[in-house]
């Protein structure tokens, strides 16, 4: 419940404050968001499985975001930033789909 509320508050804050993304953060923010979404879906799935662990969630969330940012950073340095970003998004997307499927099975029993 608290995480859902927090998410809502974050959305509202973003809408109200409407900040501009700093230039250095612009390449990383979308990938970081996708990575965080992946962690959240994983957490929801674990929670539905009754196996949720706050510490694991926090660590996975932070590490997901950091690794995603690192990959983008490395890709930019290597000159393949665009392709690596795409690869990260694809991988994370697949994982989100997988988690979403597990959640669906839990919720709808189908």
């Amino acid at each position: 419940m608290i995480p859902a509320f927090a998410l809502l508050i974050g959305v509202i804050l973003g809408l109200v404050l409407d900040p501009t993304v700093p230039l250095w953060l612009q390449p990383y923010l979308p990938i970081a968001v996708v990575a965080a979404l992946d962690a959240v879906f994983g957490g929801v799935r674990a929670w539905l499985d009754g196996l949720f662990d706050a510490k694991v969630f926090v660590v996975s969330f932070v590490s997901n975001v950091l690794v995603a940012a690192l990959i983008v950073f490395l890709g930019d340095k290597l000159g393949v930033g665009g392709q690596l970003s795409t690869a990260v998004v694809v991988v994370l997307g697949i994982r989100i789909f997988g988690n979403a499927a597990a959640i669906r099975r839990h919720v709808f029993r189908a």
Binding site: I2, A4, L7, G10, V11, L15, V33, A36, V40
Partner: peptide, 18 residues
Amino acid sequence: IGLLCLLLGFALVVQVRS
């Protein structure tokens, strides 16, 4: 966790906006 989720929502909206 709440903080992280808040950050996520915030970042999500900011990114969509930008």
